[in-house]
């Protein structure tokens, strides 16, 4: 028993354990996702997060301890965002031709995301702090957290809501757009990128290269547009 305690003390103090568990949970979630023939509800992020939260609660581990290990994975978000330049370059020709439709659609989508969140959230009676944390939900985590802080939300809650939105967009996005009658992978990928940032983009890449590239582009641009629009809209509505 003493040996077990000593091993646990070692593991609890090192990043290795939670890093390994995170990668393992993702691997398992990926396997389940494939085993269910990519059933949208078996989204790998959703499954892995649910599994990890259960493990942390069961072992009475706090988030900070977990994140000490998981931060190595978290850090890779930055280089991965930069790497989106490569598929984007592959779509350069199309992008040159489509810059005007893309610009206008981006503005429309970004405004819709912000205004519908404010309106529906208010009608649903969300607490002001929760509502303000939810407003930047469609943009990538680091920029969403920055916006939330600026407008009086809770950045750490925003991070979670952004992930939930991403999962929703990834699960709902392409099947719903297909059902409504959209065929073009560019339009579908773009919409998923506007509504559901990087998690949507990850899903769009498994649909097609073009969908993924436009999704990544929409995600990047929407981050910048939302960061400008949110403070302006809140100021206009007297918030």
């Amino acid at each position: 028993m003493d040996t077990l305690t000593r091993i646990w003390v070692y593991l609890a103090g090192q990043p290795l354990l939670w890093l390994t568990v995170t990668v393992g949970a993702y691997g398992l979630a990926q396997w389940l996702f494939r085993a269910t023939r990519e059933l949208p509800l078996a989204n790998p992020v959703l499954l892995a997060v649910a599994a990890l939260v259960s493990v942390l609660l069961a072992t009475d581990t706090d988030y900070q301890t977990y994140f000490d290990g998981a931060q190595f994975v978290h850090f890779l978000l930055g280089p991965a965002t930069v790497a989106l330049a490569i598929p984007l370059y592959g779509q350069a020709e199309r992008l040159r031709r489509l810059w005007l439709p893309i610009g206008v659609a981006l503005l429309a989508g970004s405004l819709t995301a912000i205004v519908s969140t404010l309106g529906i959230g208010y009608l649903m009676g969300l607490d002001t702090e929760t509502l303000r944390s939810l407003v930047p939900k469609s943009v990538t985590t680091p920029i969403a957290m920055g916006i939330a802080e600026q407008i009086g939300g809770l950045p750490s809650l925003t991070a979670v809501l952004v992930i939930l939105t991403g999962i929703t967009g990834a699960v709902l996005g392409i099947p719903m757009l297909r059902l409504v009658g959209f065929r073009d992978p560019v339009a579908k990928g773009f919409a998923v990128g506007v509504a559901a940032h990087g998690i949507g983009t990850a899903r769009a890449f498994s649909h097609s290269e073009a969908a993924g590239a436009f999704s990544g582009l929409a995600m990047g641009l929407n981050g910048a547009v939302t960061a400008i629009l949110v403070p302006v809209l809140l100021w206009l509505t007297g918030g």
């Binding site: 995170t22 990668v23 949970a25 993702y26 790998p44 992020v45 892995a48 997060v49 990890l52 939260v53 942390l56 988030y63 977990y66 994140f67 998981a70 931060q71 994975v73 978290h74 890779l76 978000l77 991965a80 985590t141 750490s156 991070a159 979670v160 952004v162 992930i163 939930l164 991403g166 990087g198 998690i199 983009t201 990850a202 890449f205």
Partner: peptide, 12 residues
């Protein structure tokens, strides 16, 4: 890419 969002998601 999905893997990289998991640590932030666990923040729930």
């Amino acid at each position: 890419l999905s893997l990289l969002f998991i640590p932030a998601g666990v923040g729930i």
